[in-house]
Design a protein around this nucleic acid. Structure first.
Lengths: 344, 344
DNA sequence: TACAAAAGTGGAACCGGTTCCACTCCGGAT
DNA sequence: ATCCGGAGTGGAACCGGTTCCACTTTTGTA
């Protein structure tokens, strides 16, 4: 176990000062004679020298690192998002420190502290909804924060990237109404979040357009956490007058909701038409393949990274940015006209 | 945007020297009078002081960080593994820097360089198979390396955590033979990897036990990368005398293999009995629910982290450790007796 | 009461980079 | 010939922690 060479080793071997080596390492930081530059580069290569990130960070006061704070990697949505973000970040020479919160504000608070210690220059997160002061403090210390998929309204000056919530919910609802359904259930995130609200509003808008009344009991805004999606589905199916169609409008609830549907053995679409907000590979492998709102993960990843990096380089105007990307509705075979639905 | 307090701010405010603050921060590094300790702690709290990780790393020469190098987070196996590792690492106060390789040795090489720059004290990885010298160099520089799920045989002194490859393959094969199948296909990782070989051997062993001949054409050791699993499945089904049962024995190939099966519309288990090495939630949601070898992700995560952390603290004996954890076979409904299989 | 051992403290070097600044060249303009 | 400005260079301070060591104050014990 030998130890790695430092910049002073390189300088000594090349017969120059550390300043010169540093300038070779960081072009544009000062002039270096072409001949010496070659010498230094050769020595760097020979010695296998690599600058220590910690030293650079200490001196610079901040790291070329971003924090990625998601709730849970076992949710394919976040996993794929993380995959894309890591990929995209790498191509910009930025590392990603990963933290998961399990939807727990305490764990989230811990994560934020840790990211602060690491002097990350940016954070991409799906916030739990708590820790408002912590998020504010982070921003106050110059960390660029971008929220994906959700947001916290109390927080000014945060960039947000999400899908067109209102529109996606409206279109899926319209589609089901078009099939003749009038009792359409909606499982979505908490009404306190802007995304939850936007989706509910889209759902309502579609009803109004069609002059249909909305049964408030069919709207279930449930916590992201745990099995709340499944429980909502269970209770919806147990209603005296159960829905004939269901929209699961939040990635966090899709897995448990669909599991519940399979467990109770309800026939899709014969007994219930289903649309989920998700683009997981397995939605296509089920029988029947589920109709989905396809969340454009690439776009979400690219935009959130663009925002973080743009802020890091000070290349963006000052106000907070709110980016909504279009989500496609993909009809597969989990929805049937009401006429064919066997009311039980 | 104000700037964060440093240890000297704390020292000045508390009216002590930086040494004292440092000793308060790191118990056991030296004595501090109880009264002063209280003072310092109070000031730290008032100022909201947090030690900068970079400074600590620079001084210590290594970081309380481990690198996690997986191929692809869109594979639920790795995603869930990552989730568990991040979770487990956090509980030990260790951060995780995430890198993905997409099975590309070049990207892997990049990742290793980056981790070196970061002075990580450990790496948990599913290696692509290349970069042997790079891995060796990493170890040589004192980085503790643990491989999960796969390994590189040329590399001495690496800890490895995986499931009981031989046994898992043998048991699944035995199960299918027990159902009367004699033409059982095996899709697994490259024969060059020890895991690929072990699984093939397990498959062979089950055949020998039952005095069954092995048709080498039914064994497909394919690359981890891309759609090779699906292609193997396609070509197996196109054989003049196609298999009546299929074992997909590597997580990297499960997704594409199953997708192909669904695409060609083969009926499971009527036309083909299927077992996959995976423990994804969706295997249960398919119809029929797939019989699986359940990889104990928790155990894989816990053991690999234990190894890395143990090495970091020098608490482990010198030789490399090879940990195999038991994987359960979970029979669901994707396998049928040969008698009921419709040979086409 | 004396005196060694232990507890407590602060100064300063150090980790490995970056950056500011002073200084030496050199060519070109006056 | 003289001056100016910029290219090229190295010395040294600095980033924010840790740690060694010298020093002072307690404490315990003979």
């Amino acid at each position: 176990m030998k130890k790695a060479p430092t910049i002073r080793d390189v300088a000594a071997t090349a017969g120059v000062s550390v300043s010169v080596v540093s300038r070779v390492l960081n072009p544009d930081s000062g002039p270096v004679a072409p001949a010496k530059r070659q010498d230094v580069l050769r020595v760097i290569d020979e010695l296998g020298y690599r600058p220590r990130a910690a030293a650079r960070e200490l001196s610079a006061g901040h790291a070329l690192t971003i924090g990625l704070v998601v709730t849970d990697l076992s949710n394919p949505f976040f996993a794929r998002l993380a995959d894309r973000i890591v990929w995209e970040a790498r191509s910009h020479g930025v590392q990603v420190v990963l933290m998961t919160t399990q939807e727990d504000p305490h764990l989230e608070a811990d994560s934020l502290d840790t990211l602060l210690d690491r002097s990350v220059s940016g954070v991409i997160a799906t916030p739990t909804g708590g820790n408002i002061e912590k998020w504010a403090r982070l921003q106050d210390l110059g960390v660029n924060v971008v929220f994906v998929d959700r947001t916290i309204e109390e927080l000014a000056d945060v960039d947000v990237v999400s899908i067109e919530n209102f529109d996606s919910a409206r279109r899926s609802t319209e589609y089901l109404i078009g099939l003749g359904h009038t009792r359409i259930a909606l499982v979505t995130g908490p009404r306190q979040t802007s995304t939850g609200r936007a989706r509910i509003n889209g759902y309502r808008a579609a009803h109004e357009e069609a002059s249909l009344a909305v049964d408030p009991l069919l709207i279930r805004d449930v916590p992201f956490r745990g099995d709340s999606g499944g429980d909502a589905v269970g209770s919806l199916l147990a209603m005296p007058q159960p829905p004939t169609a269901l929209i699961v409008a939040n990635t966090a609830q899709v897995q448990s909701s669909v599991r519940r549907l399979v467990q109770v053995g309800i026939r899709i679409p014969d007994e219930l038409s289903v649309i989920v907000f998700d683009d997981n590979p397995w939605t296509e492998l089920m029988s029947p393949p589920l109709s989905v709102i396809r969340q454009p993960l690439d776009m979400l990843a690219v935009h959130s990274l663009e925002l973080v990096l743009g802020r890091m380089q000070g290349k963006l105007p000052d106000g907070p940015r709110f980016i909504e990307v279009k989500a496609d509705f993909l009809a597969r075979n989990s929805c049937a006209p009401l006429a064919q639905t066997a009311i039980h």
